[in-house]
Amino acid sequence: MTQSRKRAYGRRIALLSSGPALFGLTLFLIIPFLLAFALTFTDQRLVATDSGRFVGWRNYERLLSISYVVQDPQPGVQGKPAFARVRDVTRADPVHRGFRPFSDFSWGQKRVTILAKDPVFLESLLNTFGFALMVVPLQCAMALALALLVNAGLRGQTFLRAVYFSPVVMSMVVVSIVWTFLFDRDLGSINKLLSLLSLGTIGPVNWLGGRATAMPAIALMSAWQGAGFQMLIFLAGLQGISQELYDAARIDGATAWQRFWNVTIPGLRQTIAFVLVVTAIAALGLFTQVDVMTQGGPQNGTSTVMFHAIQRGVREENIAYGSTVAVVYFAIITLLILAQQALQRRWSK
């Protein structure tokens, strides 16, 4: 075979072997995504499927517009400064039509209110990243701890691996329903257990109903559900670290902590990076748990980007807007990935 014919043959094989997968990805992932992108410039609705008219950047404008109002204090009751209701101000002023308060802060005597056309999206964005910041370290630390534990050479560890892995095989819908019950303020086992352990000093916590506890509760449950799988990946990493390194450290008189810090962690660098990425991607797509357990409440405290997209797109039948949420979100994540890769390249130089 000549070199060029060989190359042509190789190309044909390459095409043949990657073809089916690339075809599938194109047809069932890339094209629908491009379709979603195209929808963002229309007013397409779910039920009236032939309604899609071109509306330009309207969806993006509604999603991303931000503004502000500055208010002077008015003489209030009891000497405290009072402010006019922001909603009265925004609804009266055509400049602020469609804007709703997102958050506010004091600026000297004045009050500044940040307005957004879709404050729930901004809240959802913050909640989603907040969730990722909670669940990624928690889940990875839990997984690493479990991996160290079932790798310690103790009897029964094979069985325990299965036990720790078991939540992974349970459907997220099922897990969420069970935990909703466990988290229940009055009848849930978690509060009963807390009360028992604290001899009644800890009153019933409204886990899923409190703004401060709802997202952490969901994060805790999610970490619990997923840690088993990352445990297996860490186990793989641990078994790749040479025993000689540990022995050498021991001879140098290193404590268990020093060995962990100086041998285990460096040895797991690749694994940790992989686990972090995989966990973060899953965390940023949070939807099922929220939908089953809190419906985004209390007061949007657990609303996430995907939840917002489904609410607007499917439940309110505005698929053009739902798609816009998803596309903007995708753009943000892609930018983050690119930034992370750029940083990594700079580091490794």
């Binding site: 209701r85 308060p101 985004g296 409440g297 007061q299 949007n300 439940r315 309110e316 039948e317």
Partner: peptide, 30 residues
């Protein structure tokens, strides 16, 4: 009205927020 789903969902979220402590006037304005 063809907008019923959106109306229903908006009212639902307003009520949930009110039940969870949001200012009723603000929730209904939203």
């Amino acid at each position: 009205t063809p907008a019923f789903s959106a109306i229903s969902n908006s009212f639902f979220f307003a009520l949930q927020n009110i039940a969870d402590g949001k200012d009723p006037h603000d929730a209904l304005d939203d």
